[in-house]
Write a protein that binds this DNA or RNA. Structure first.
Lengths: 337, 337
DNA sequence: CCCTCATTGTAAAACGTTTTCATTCGCTAT
DNA sequence: ATAGCGAATGAAAACGTTTTACAATGAGGG
């Protein structure tokens, strides 16, 4: 009841040609209803299942797209992947998922593997786009869209939020609470999102409020809980000068920050206020619940995939570079006023 | 520099037959070194990239395996997927990832899609195996291994821990701390893991200590943080009779339990002790840090995939039904003694 | 009743590999 | 030299579809 049955067997059983079977399988309208039924019956009876590989070879379409993420076990990318998969399913695509660990060589290798597998398109996410990779992207035979990933020249299809303005908003809300010193804990600055966007938003909010920029208030982490704790402890060593308001680049780091503070005997938000970034499920799994910038990962994934399908179907596209809205979700790690 | 270049072009360029090119591409030793070099040069020069689809059609192997999980955005499955992907990469396989949402029809549909795509094997996870699915599994033309998933008859390849004994150990450790009443918060009982295994472990630990079983001490949740909170609040309504030691079926529910307790003004572990299950990254991201049963998700994924490769390579296999070790990680949500 | 056109069906060529089988090549042992 | 042999190479079939080009059939108009 399955795999070794070919379209030819069905054709014989239904007493038609294989082209006719192919037509009914693919919903081609040029088939007489009675014929269609005859064929369908044969298909059901034989348990015929079209061979997608043969189909892919003949049609040059695999209805499969590649997805490259840094690490699927990171809740952040997992959410994104789910968004991608859901709309992929909607459009009858499957997903080949790959983890790059942000390793440039691995990224290129994965790209080539995926192209070898004849995927119809690729969705890529990664912190920093090495120029070799960008070059490969630009000569790719299939469309590639970037999800939550910046590209220097903004000439590749991409879906993001406005990170700079998001950071600006977060920092401004802290300033509005009367803080003169704002701690900023973020990921590696060579990643455009941190170095160019979030950092710029941080500085512009400071400037706007005529607050001086103080280098010692910014600490680099690597997105993880532990690095958040470590960064906060480093800030704490500033003693009197330690900023009493912290903007952390990811929720996970924000959790680390809050726990570092609590472990040191401080209260959040009474002694320190903290804002996170991403609004992952973690945000409500901590006491106090985390105020955070919402970056809609699921939506970014979904929109990326939708954009890809548009490109694949040659649909009309307003813009290749879409920016999704962000906002700040007020919870309990900041004071209500 | 890519896709429309075929093996035939390379053959012409190197002045050999396509069979020879195929041989060098596949590392077949029967090629004279000088010929090999000539071909390799042609490949490099032309930027030839083998078409995996054509290869799959000719060889009936796609070096792709299907992975069906309930929901990749769940940290639990994300970890597992990472384990799978890592060893898949090691053995040069790619992964087609699908989310089933534990929907039986969707599970069957996904299975058929994957088989249509000619995957070489499948790794499946899901709470409850509908009998239709099991039947399909058993007639599948390619091997299927279950990861962190129980099968009634234990006749399919599977990788798990001993859930019953893990639950037993957890409950026993609570009993050893002097508790007479143990709260048990778990997922739907119709899922074998909860209903048959964890529950049985809970009861046997009770029995062993000659403690009575009290139905009101067990509450059902759905694995989520919120359901954990809700379940704990329900237990709290028991007032005086409320158990002061809780075993939660997942870490996420355990977090909910702890927060419900804290929100109600109690101290963990002073007033209540709680043990979680899974040892996800969440466990250390809460205060107090969570004592938990470690179910090594990453390892289960990795071992599942390894088992699958063994089956695919027809390697010698000791047992189809592997049980990985578990243990309890003592942290701060239980008392040290 | 013939011609034209639309509809439905057929045959066969692609698609880009792997793989089987035969052939050729280059030696060694006679 | 030459038979014999293993190693290296090549020719062509196969894999299971889609798709193209065309043939057959049937209906409607003049």
């Amino acid at each position: 009841m399955n795999s070794n049955i070919t379209i030819y067997d069905v054709a014989r059983e239904a007493a038609v040609s294989m082209a006719t079977v192919s037509r009914v399988v693919n919903g081609n309208p040029n088939v007489k209803p009675s014929t269609r039924k005859k064929v369908q019956d044969a298909i059901d009876q034989l348990g015929y299942r079209p061979n997608a590989v043969a189909r892919g070879l003949a049609s040059k379409k695999t209805t499969t797209v590649g997805v490259i993420v840094p690490d699927i076990s990171n809740i952040f990318f997992a959410d994104l992947a789910r968004g991608i998969e859901d709309v992929a399913t909607m459009y009858k695509y499957n997903i080949i998922l790959c983890n790059s660990d942000q390793n440039p060589e691995k990224e290129i290798h994965l790209l080539n593997t995926l192209l070898g597998k004849q995927v119809d398109g690729i969705i890529f996410m990664g912190g920093r786009l090495h120029e070799d990779l960008v070059r490969e992207f630009k000569t790719s035979p299939v469309p590639i869209v970037l999800a939550a990933t910046l590209n220097q020249d903004y000439d590749l299809p991409a879906v993001n939020i406005d990170y700079e303005s998001a950071a600006h908003d977060a920092v401004k809300s802290l300033i509005d609470h009367g803080h003169k010193q704002i701690g900023f804990i973020t990921g590696p600055l060579e990643q455009q999102i941190n170095g160019e966007k979030k950092f710029a938003g941080y500085r512009s909010a400071l400037e706007e409020a005529n607050l001086p920029f103080d280098e010692q208030n910014v600490v680099l982490g690597n997105y993880t809980y532990d690095s958040g704790m470590k960064a906060m402890n480093q800030l704490l060593e500033l003693g009197e000068d330690c900023p009493r308001a912290i903007f952390a680049g990811t929720d996970e780091m924000a959790l680390g920050v809050i726990h570092a503070l609590q472990d040191a005997g401080y209260q959040v938000p009474e002694d320190f206020e903290v804002i996170g970034h991403d609004n992952t499920r973690l945000a409500t799994m901590i006491r106090p619940k985390l105020t955070t910038v919402v970056q809609p990962m699921y939506d970014i994934g979904a929109v990326s995939m939708r954009l890809l399908t548009k490109i694949l179907n040659k649909e009309e596209i307003e813009t290749n570079d879409v920016t999704l809205p962000h906002r700040i979700e007020q919870r309990d790690s900041t004071r209500s006023q």
